[in-house]
Simulated assay, not measured.
Amino acid sequence: MKWLKSRKGQQAVIIFSFVTVPLLLLLIFTYLPFAQMVQFSFYKMKYLTPPDKRVFVGLKNYIDVFTRDDCFKALKLSVYYCIGALFQLALALFLATILSFGVKGGNILKGMMFFPYLISGIAIGFIFKFFYTRGFVLDSILGLFGVSQEALPYWLKDQAVNNWSLVATSVWRYFGQNMVLFIGAIMSVDAELYEAAALDGANRFQQFFHIILPSIKTIVTLNVILSITGSLSAFEPPYVITSGANGTGTYFVIMNEIAHVTQKVGLASAMAVVLLIIIFICTILQKLFFKYAFREADT
Rank of each mutant, 00 (worst) to 15 (best):
I284L: 14
K287L: 15
V171P: 02
A196C: 10
I225A: 03
V19H: 00
K2D: 14
F290Q: 00
V55E: 15
H260I: 12
L142Q: 01
F128L: 07
I15W: 06
I122L: 15
L276V: 11
I119A: 04
K44M: 02
R54F: 04
F235G: 12
K217G: 03
L77R: 07
A234C: 12
S165E: 03
S78D: 04
N223Y: 07
K104H: 13
K2S: 15
Q36I: 09
A96D: 07
G105I: 00
A270I: 08
I281C: 06
T262R: 09
D64V: 05
G146W: 08
G121E: 08
K291V: 06
I225P: 03
K53C: 14
A151C: 11
V180M: 11
Y292W: 13
V273E: 02
V261H: 10
L25R: 03
L86F: 10
V147P: 09
F34L: 13
M255Q: 11
G230E: 05
F145T: 06
N256T: 12
C282K: 09
T229N: 14
I211C: 06
T169Y: 08
G125K: 10
K157P: 04
G201S: 05
N107G: 12
I228A: 05
A191V: 15
L25E: 00
V65E: 00
S170H: 10
T20W: 05
V171C: 05
T169H: 05
G247N: 01
T299C: 07
K264E: 15
T67M: 00
V273P: 01
F136E: 13
M179H: 00
L25F: 06
Q36W: 15
T67R: 07
G176P: 10
C71W: 03
S227M: 00
S243K: 13
P51T: 12
F290N: 06
I119V: 11
V253Q: 04
K5P: 05
V253D: 05
Q286K: 00
K217R: 13
V180K: 10
Q263L: 08
P237N: 02
G58D: 06
L89D: 09
Y174F: 13
F114N: 05
Q207Y: 03
A35Q: 14
L138F: 07
F205H: 08
F294E: 00
S231M: 02
E195Y: 11
T262H: 12
I258K: 10
S120H: 02
L193V: 07
N163C: 10
F208K: 01
G184N: 15
I281R: 02
E236V: 09
L213D: 10
F126W: 14
V180A: 01
L285T: 02
I186R: 03
F290S: 02
N223T: 07
V161M: 00
